[in-house]
């Protein structure tokens, strides 16, 4: 069963019941002061168009890098020292508790912070998505500060879904992503308390960031493996999966025969057994 939750008045987020999915990814859109704004609708396959207001002229490029505002570096440094430095060190060089962040690139920082995975509540378990602690502007400031420390690493990708192909995306998604995240994007448990998270709360930028940076146990997909165009195609398909064509009715959480079996037995056979109880009655 899908609960559609309206956030920020603009975007519908399906949350699979029984799946530890949070709506953290959308948090940045619900805060009005965000540097990046979203317009357009995410609903059906054909009207999928997302544009970022804050990017430089993208043209037809499927992915452009977000230019970070260097005037926010000071703010970013303050936020970093307050929230991150206790583990990652004052200059982001890493400590015994947390890895080095210098030179990882803005995309990595942006993914972890914007999905709410960082700052971490408990460093011993896999970081899970939760509502981000920062506004979009604050997150970008932190990104700007950390990426100003050294060059290198992938930049924050802004995906032009208008230039992407849904059906090519399906092919790439089923080849590269469905193994862990499932073919419906609902996510599942991997070995040893590692989880492939649900893709339903993810934004276009976060999806592209994850593909390029390979957070946690996820493999990295560089440009030699997936081109920018291919990443944009995948993003378009994942955005479609967040609101798929449920022509058959209630989606039952999109986890396949497990819920179908329970519905068939409990609701199907169950209601018929109640009917049979009415018809047959009890022996006198």
């Amino acid at each position: 069963m899908i609960i559609r939750k309206k956030l920020g008045g603009r975007i519908l987020v399906p949350v699979a019941l029984g799946v530890a999915a949070s709506v953290s990814g959308m948090a940045l859109f619900s805060q009005g002061a965000a540097a990046a704004t979203v317009s357009g609708s995410v609903g059906s396959a054909n009207t999928n168009s997302l544009t970022y207001g804050g990017t430089s002229g993208a043209g037809n490029a499927p992915i452009t890098n977000l230019k970070l505002d260097s005037s926010t570096i000071a703010l970013g440094k303050t936020l970093f020292v307050e929230n991150c430095s206790s583990c990652h060190g004052d200059s982001a060089g890493g400590t015994s508790r947390a890895p080095n962040l210098v030179g990882l690139g803005a995309a990595t920082i942006d993914f972890w912070v914007s999905t709410g995975r960082m700052p971490l509540a408990d460093p011993t378990v896999q970081a899970i998505a939760k509502p981000s602690r920062f506004t979009r502007a604050q997150t970008l400031a932190i990104d700007a500060y950390v990426s100003s420390l050294a060059t290198g690493g992938p930049q924050i990708p802004v995906v032009n879904l208008g230039a992407a192909s849904l059906s090519v995306g399906e092919g790439l998604f089923s080849t590269n992503c469905a193994g862990c995240h499932t073919i419906t994007g609902v996510g599942d448990a991997l070995a040893d308390a590692v989880y492939a998270p649900s893709l339903y709360p993810a934004t276009s930028t976060q999806i592209a960031e994850a593909v390029r940076t390979g957070p946690g146990n996820m493999p990295r997909f560089g440009t030699g493996n997936l081109s920018d165009q291919q990443v944009a195609d995948i993003v378009k398909y994942v955005k479609y999966l967040q609101h798929p064509n449920n022509a058959g009715g209630i989606g039952l959480g999109h986890v396949g025969p497990v819920t179908e079996g329970f519905v068939g037995i409990l609701i199907g056979l169950g209601s018929l057994m109640i009917a049979g109880y009415w018809i047959g009655g009890r022996a006198h």
Partner: peptide, 9 residues
Amino acid sequence: LAQINPIWM
């Protein structure tokens, strides 16, 4: 009313 085996997905 209840979707089963949405093979298109």
